[in-house]
Amino acid sequence: MKFAVVVFPGSNCDHDAYYAVKHVLGQDAAFVWHKDTSLAGADVVILPGGFAHGDYLRTGAIARFSPIMQAVRRFADVGGPVLGICNGFQVLLEAGLLPGAMLRNRSVKFQCEHVFVRVEQTDTPFSTACRQGQVLKIPIAHGEGNYYAEPAVVERLEQNRQVIFRYTTAAGAATPDANPNGSVNNIAGLCSEARNVVGLMPHPERACELAIGSADGLVVLESAVKSVTRGAFAAAG
């Protein structure tokens, strides 16, 4: 199966995602330039981290108008699995593929550290290989990861079980202290109503080998392989 890793001007985790998919997971992977209009037959699309278009105006605000985003939207509309990591999550929010927006971190600092996230739901293409309640040690690196949505929207997200990852302690408790950026309800990642589009601020692709501190993120990418292999969330890119 094939992963497409979208490259915007300013993406800087595109190679991390490519490496994790290609060399750790052993899957086919291809970079797709933001001005391309086709996803080149990919089974899974990753919008990587970084600073697309310099984060000018707002994070993700310019990237959502890149030509490739029309193909990503079509792919998502027909059920294709799309994963937005960090800046990729911010792009999905600006594009309206996921609800809500990002504010500056509560600390007003760029937070770069390992955090713990708890897997809340396993019925998405990026969590299906996880155990519900599993706690993953994954790094974050962002200045604007303070997830916000109106209270009614947050309530709907919770009711629909769209919160997929939540910041917790190592023991899995969603406390205020375990929340690195001020996100409402400790939300670290969520999915679309159709559950095939997932965005998260932590970087699973940077936690795929013990040599670099944690391999806990691998299960997120393995989920995509498992999901596509068994035919769930399949679409032709």
Partner: peptide
């Protein structure tokens, strides 16, 4: 401007 209901971390810091 941020909506009145939205917390402004930068404004608070300033």
């Amino acid at each position: 401007t941020l909506k009145p209901s939205v917390f402004d971390p930068q404004g608070t810091m300033v």
